[in-house]
Simulated assay, not measured.
Amino acid sequence: IYEKFKQAIELGKWPDGRTLSREQKEICLQAVMLYEVKHGLDESNRTGYVDTTKKTSPCGPKDDSDDESTIRILH
């Protein structure tokens, strides 16, 4: 059930193709998060974890000059 809930949250639909309502998404997310805490998943492996140790600078140039930068998309 945990894996099916996670997949439903990620895809926005149930395995049979029906769309999750907003309320269903909220309930599934709460259930997944509670399961992860109860079963002792490491914090970095939990749903919704954001690594705050990797600080980055804000987006955009610091001044009004044209700034050309490479954008890296991570999968």
Rank of each mutant, 00 (worst) to 15 (best):
M33T: 15
Y35E: 02
V37D: 13
E3A: 09
I1S: 14
Q24L: 09
D42R: 12
G40A: 04
S65C: 12
T47M: 12
N45E: 14
H39Q: 08
V37G: 04
T47V: 08
I9E: 06
E36A: 10
T19N: 01
K25W: 05
I71A: 06
H39C: 08
W14D: 11
R18E: 07
D51R: 09
E26L: 04
Y2A: 06
M33G: 10
D64E: 07
R22S: 06
K4E: 10
R46G: 04
Q30G: 11
W14Q: 14
A31K: 14
Y49M: 12
R22E: 06
G60A: 06
G60R: 01
R72E: 13
Y49H: 09
E23L: 13
R72G: 01
K13G: 05
A8K: 02
Y49C: 01
L11M: 09
T19H: 07
E23F: 05
K6W: 05
Q7Y: 06
H39Y: 13
D64A: 10
P61W: 07
H75A: 05
G60C: 06
E43W: 06
P61A: 02
L11Q: 15
D51N: 15
M33E: 15
R46M: 11
E36D: 14
I71K: 15
D51P: 05
K4Q: 08
P61E: 05
Y35L: 01
D16W: 10
D67M: 10
W14A: 07
K4D: 04
V50C: 10
I27T: 14
S21T: 15
L29M: 08
I9P: 03
G40V: 03
S57R: 08
T70F: 09
G60P: 06
S44W: 05
W14N: 15
W14I: 02
A31R: 10
N45V: 01
E23S: 11
G12Q: 07
D42A: 15
L34T: 14
C28W: 10
S44D: 04
R46D: 07
H75C: 13
D64K: 11
K6F: 00
